[in-house]
Design a protein around this nucleic acid. Structure first.
Lengths: 346, 346
DNA sequence: GGTCTTGTTGCTCATCTGTCTCCCACGTCC
DNA sequence: GGACGTGGGAGACAGATGAGCAACAAGACC
């Protein structure tokens, strides 16, 4: 503790050269002509002294901090945010950047969000990742535009900012397709009631896939409830009470599927023998731990975080142009994760 | 985009004073003698120009960054890390600090952890929070000592670093106590097989509480398995097959309790009428969504994150002495969260 | 009443933080 | 006398900080 930090000038003094030379050597400056002996000397002295650069001073001079700001909604509420952070952190670390994280309540006012971005700006982050807790349209703080930025899991109301979102339709198609592939012809959908893109897109995909398979997608049974376990339970009770009871159930998310499991159990229906179920989200804690394991569709949170970070850094380093990518959001696939909840109908 | 950022000198010029004066005004320097008129002038010009300080330059000069480093294990694997981050972020923001986060795999080598800390040090963070994914003994990177630091959810093998951990014993006592209060006399414990403090402390508390209540704590049934859903299922099958079948079950964590629910269902035992269950962890996704809702004990992750941050900042600002707190870890309570899984025995 | 001293007010100058980078200097060898 | 090989000096980045200076007022003294 407390032996004051040593800087480039301490190294210079100890090595008997100028600070300029030390800087040249340590940064492998292209045009610097310095003898191999001097280079070795400088390097070894630096290591001996345990020299580490002061990134603040570097950043001040070079106008590059190597820091990315990540403003994330509701870090704690959902494990999804964790996966985005992880994807972003690993991608950032791989390219020598670090993450500065700011949490913001989903309910935060625009001014409050703007203040968050401002804090990041004052620290001169090289770019900003703006992550929301679920796929929707968000209104962005105006000052976001003053530095390269990428939206994760949302599209901006105004458009024209690079964004990456999950392939809701493809995911839903994969889920329903898995049911059809197993031979089901009576398939129902337990939907969410929120007015978010996922609700509409998954429903549309559900109907489309059935129709394309020669079934009557238009009149296939759909029940909507709040997207929680109890909502899934209620909706499943209703849908399973129909005369033409479905043998396959596509659930809006894994929590609703969990509710469907209970409804099935109460009705004496065995999964997957009497009823096949497929969810959405791949919330490990639920999907892998239900019995039988829930076949579901994974949201690419990790991948979105990594993609956004990669492209943000490309833009910062001038290797890519965000503006051209901003024309439409990038869509990342939602792969099917097979477990044991789907079987052929009896 | 691109109107170059304005600095203190732009403000000075626009206000017709020196940069020194601007700095004095904006920082409310105590000994600075500046007329109220000038102060107002400077402030209004600064606001008009949308001036924001360059925290890098400030930090370089003052040797204070206002940044806290948080190295966290396995951000994604568990929602617990999210709660620690949230607690830390809110506490930090309240005092004007920001968080710089680095994720590290739980399996990372000591050198790799040291490199993570080094990265934080190079950015001159004012202090470091070192969070682990569950309560255990960790070996810390040596360079952690070069800046004020606090351990979250762990104690160091070497001791002498301030740490904050959950009250395992108190939590276990509350859980078992809830069962006894409901009138149960035959109570079993489904334990974890990992050799971590929680395993031993919860077991000890379990036996102690029973004994203190006049029951035979020493011979109360205990079954151990891996701390996952299927382990909980296996252990519950065994414990519920006993002749003196327990009417109350204390489970090592909520996942194991989830397995116990299934075991009970298969045996035709209704919760809570035939069997009362209490878990540990309060993993919302599980505890609140099981049917009936699982009564459990909450781990104070948010509180630990906030506590650690508060005290770290106190130490940084010279308002507290970490060394004196390092003598023994601070213990934070684990409150009981009541839901519907406990009833009086038949 | 004039000048000198001392104090106060209001603000600026010079210097510092640690690093990078452009440009120049010095010696040597063809 | 250039070209080459080696290396150093002096800002600049954006702001913080304490000493110092000018202007003026009030007393003090003869």
């Amino acid at each position: 503790m407390s032996n004051k930090t040593i800087g480039i000038k301490d190294v210079a003094q100890a090595a008997g050269v100028s600070v300029t030379t030390v800087s040249h050597v340590l940064n492998d400056v292209a045009y610097a002509r310095i003898s191999p002996e001097t280079r070795d000397k400088v390097r070894s002295v630096a290591e001996q002294l345990g020299y580490g650069p002061n990134r603040l001073a570097q950043a001040l001079r070079t106008q590059r901090t190597g820091m990315l700001g990540l403003v994330s909604e509701e870090i704690a509420t959902t494990p999804h945010a964790g996966r985005i952070i992880l994807g972003a952190d690993e991608a950032a670390k791989a390219r020598g950047y670090n993450l500065m994280i700011i949490n913001t309540p989903g309910s935060a006012s625009l001014e409050s969000r703007q203040a968050d971005v401002q804090a990041l700006l004052e620290r001169r982050v090289d770019g900003i990742l703006y992550a929301t807790m679920y796929h929707r349209n968000v209104e962005l703080p105006a000052n976001l535009g003053s530095v390269p930025s990428v939206l994760v899991d949302s599209v901006a109301t105004g458009g024209n900012i690079t964004a990456v979102i999950p392939d809701e339709e493809g995911g839903a198609r994969a889920a329903v397709g898995a049911l059809l592939d197993a031979g089901h012809t009576r398939v129902g959908f337990i939907n969410n009631t929120d007015d978010v893109p996922a609700t509409h897109q998954r429903l549309a995909a559900f109907r489309a896939v059935l129709t394309e398979a020669g079934l009557d997608g238009g009149s296939a049974p759909v029940e909507s409830e709040v997207s929680e376990v109890h909502g899934g339970y209620e909706a499943a009770r209703r849908i399973l009470a129909r005369e033409d009871r479905p043998t396959g159930l596509f659930c809006y998310n894994d929590r609703m599927a969990m509710g469907a499991y209970r409804a099935a159990a109460e009705l004496g229906l065995s999964i997957p023998d009497d009823l096949s179920v497929v969810g959405f989200d791949d919330q490990e804690l639920i999907a892998a731990n239900l019995y039988p394991g829930l076949t579901t569709v994974a949201l690419p949170h990790y991948e979105m975080g990594a993609w956004a970070t990669e492209h943000l850094i490309d833009a910062i380093e001038g290797k890519a142009d965000l503006a051209s990518m901003a024309l439409q959001p990038t869509i990342l696939g939602c792969p099917l994760v097979s477990r044991e909840s789907i079987a052929a109908p009896r």
